[in-house]
Structures are given as C-alpha cells and as structure tokens.
Design a protein around this nucleic acid. Structure first.
Lengths: 121, 121
DNA sequence: AGCGAAGTCAACCAAAAAGTTGAACACGCA
DNA sequence: TGCGTGTTCAACTTTTTGGTTGACTTCGCT
C-alpha cells in the first residue's frame, strides 16, 4: 500500500472512516466531536484521521488546541476517474461482444475457435 | 470489514487486484493468465481473486478444468454512488458558505454566533 | 488407465492494521 | 502559575492480510 490510489481505497474500506467522511461532508468537526458516536477511544479516532489525512481525503488546521478536520473533496476525482475508466472499457467490450454475437447469428453459427486458447478475448 | 462497500473498497486497495480488474476490463482471463505478470505464486493470485469475488467485482464460471474470470462492472455503481453523494454534499456546502460570506460582506460583518459550539455545521 | 495442466485447499509465517492504556504536549483561562 | 481540555505519541496486543509451500481435485488427452 504505497501509491495514492491504494491509500485512498484503503482509507475508505473502513466503515468508521467512511462514516467520518460522510459527516465531514456536512461540515468540519473536531476530533472529539468525530469520536463521540463510536465505541472506540479518541486515540483510535485520531489514528483513523491520520489514515484519512495520509490518503489526502482530509486536512487538519490548528486553531488553538483543537484541530478542526476538513474534507478535501478533490481526491474523489482520482477514484471516480479510475472507476469510470474501467467501467467504460468493460461496457464498450460488451457492446463489441454483442455486435460479434449478432454477426454470428446471421452468419455461420459454429465458430469453434479451438486454437492455442492462450489469450483472453 | 463486513458490508459490501467495505469489501469493494478493500478489494481495490491492493495494486495487484486493481491491475487485475484493469486487465479484466479488456476481456475475461484464466487464473494462470492473470497470474503471469506478477512475481507471486498462482495460489496467491487465486486468493486475490477470491477477495475480488467476495466483493462481487468478479465472477468465475467453470469451463472444463479452467475457470475464466469475468469482471462484474455493475458493482462500480455502488462506489460511484457513495462517492458522488458526499462529493456533492461537500460542494454544495462550499456554495452555501460562499453565499453566507457574500451576505456578510454586504450586511453586518459581526455575526458572532457563540452558542453551544457543539455541532459541526 | 494414467500423465499433465489448471485451480483450489490447508497450514503456516511475517508484516500491517486496528485497537487498547498511559504518558506527554499545547493551549486558554481563572 | 498551574489546572483542564483537546489531541497526539509510544508501547503493546490481537486480528487480518498477503505471501509461501505442499498436497489434492478435476479434467482433457493419448
């Protein structure tokens, strides 16, 4: 887990961290406020925040002795770009496959294709 | 890590698994084909596939003694929905904030609002 | 009937993650 | 000046993860 995308996905793999992101979408909050709903210590929440921060999902400014946590929504783009890219590729492939199947339906129906069998597609 | 979304995010937190998804977007593949580029055993790849399968990202049909792996792109929707929801919430919040700031600029500039300080908003 | 290829299962290991407790640090305030 | 609050740091434990090796199953092929 070294690259950015891995850190982002990994950060959001935890329900508590996802819930914290959900709450931060509504407004900044302090560590104690964030910790309050969960059945874990505030130290554990502090660690969760570090994970989110390392992933670039969150930033912490210091204001007196409290550190308001702020959601950095731009990182979401990184994920959506990755997801959309492969979703699209897969969808386009289905369209091509449909075209091929349609072609086969009108053409000859037995294209056994028992060659080397090595590659996918 | 029990719910669906956690499993999906967690599955994609690993670079090898993300790469496998990327390759499967282009076409189905067998376990050995998938394993080939990586410096790990085929057993390890089999485990990775189990993780992807448990997340619903991939399905395996059995065809003779090989099990072609197939990408299930629908699961991506689950993620994008989650992501978009909070991205939008955060963005709308900024717009509201901008509106408030603009209002304050023309109106009275000292709306101290030092009440309970309890909630984030 | 039996070899060989493709996958999986089981047991194990090391490293990382998620949690704990306890101590320390950094302020504001009386 | 020193107490209290908010947060982090450090050390430790337990669970999960990603990897290994070795044995086993399933099938096609000759």
């Amino acid at each position: 887990m070294d690259d950015r995308l891995s850190r982002v996905f990994s950060a959001l793999a935890d329900p508590i961290r996802r819930d914290m992101v959900a709450r931060l979408a509504v407004g900044d909050a302090t560590v104690n406020e964030l910790a309050e709903p969960y059945a874990v210590t505030v130290q554990a929440v502090s660690k969760h925040l570090k994970v989110l921060e390392d992933a670039g999902l969150v930033s912490r400014s210091k204001q007196a002795q409290r550190r308001p946590v702020h959601l950095e929504a731009e990182v979401f783009d990184l994920m959506t770009k990755w997801i959309e890219r492969y979703r699209l590729e897969a969808e386009q492939r289905y369209q091509r496959l449909d075209a091929v199947l349609a072609e086969m339906a009108v053409g000859e129906p037995d294209q056994a294709k028992t060659r080397s069998e090595g590659e996918a597609s």
